[in-house]
């Protein structure tokens, strides 16, 4: 009984407390860089697409809203198309977590309402930005041991020059 009255009193006292609601459109709250908003595809430090079309984001997506098709040029994989259906996206960030190349990143932008659902289907042109996003230095192909234009076999990080298979010397 006393507890109920105390509750009533304490609640009543909240009349004098400051309101925690942020009046959003007039006052934009500062969002942390790791906020999970609109998804983008970034580029590596050399300005090339980071996405290698490995499909891991697509398979990690719990609502299956990412679809892409792999294409290949000179050993570099890239997505032929890359589609995110944002009308399904739940901004869970699993895709970013799954991405082995830091290509797919969630940004602090969440203002993406549309009157028509088809406008929420983003293609690669809508997703690809020209910068590196949150990870300025990482380049997948500098680490991976595949040959691409400008990086021969044995020129990746921690790689020895290719073996001469015609010698039996140790």
């Amino acid at each position: 009984m006393f507890g109920i009255l105390r509750t009533l009193w304490l609640t009543f006292l909240h009349m004098g407390h400051r309101r925690v609601t942020v009046g959003y459109p007039e006052h934009k709250p500062p969002l942390p860089p790791r906020y999970r908003g609109r998804i983008i595809l970034s580029r590596d430090p050399d300005g090339m697409e980071r996405c290698v079309a490995c499909n891991l984001c697509a398979v990690a997506c719990p609502v299956d809203c990412i679809s892409l098709q792999k294409a290949e040029q000179d050993g570099r994989w890239y997505p032929d198309y890359f589609r995110i259906n944002f009308s399904r996206c739940i901004f869970c960030g699993m895709c970013e977590e799954a991405c082995p190349t830091y290509a797919i990143q969630l940004t602090p932008d969440f203002e993406m309402s549309e009157y028509l659902r088809p406008n929420l289907v983003y293609e690669k042109e809508d997703l690809l930005i020209s910068g590196t996003g949150k990870y300025p230095d990482y380049s997948f192909f500098r680490v991976a041991g595949v040959k691409i234009p400008g990086k021969d076999k044995g020129e990746a990080e921690r790689e020895a020059p290719p073996v001469d298979i015609h010698t039996l010397l140790p």
Binding site: A58, V63, D64, C65, L68, R83, S87, R117
Partner: peptide, 13 residues
Amino acid sequence: ISGRTAVRANISV
């Protein structure tokens, strides 16, 4: 299987 809600989204959502 992935992309079930996106694979046709360019045609119809």
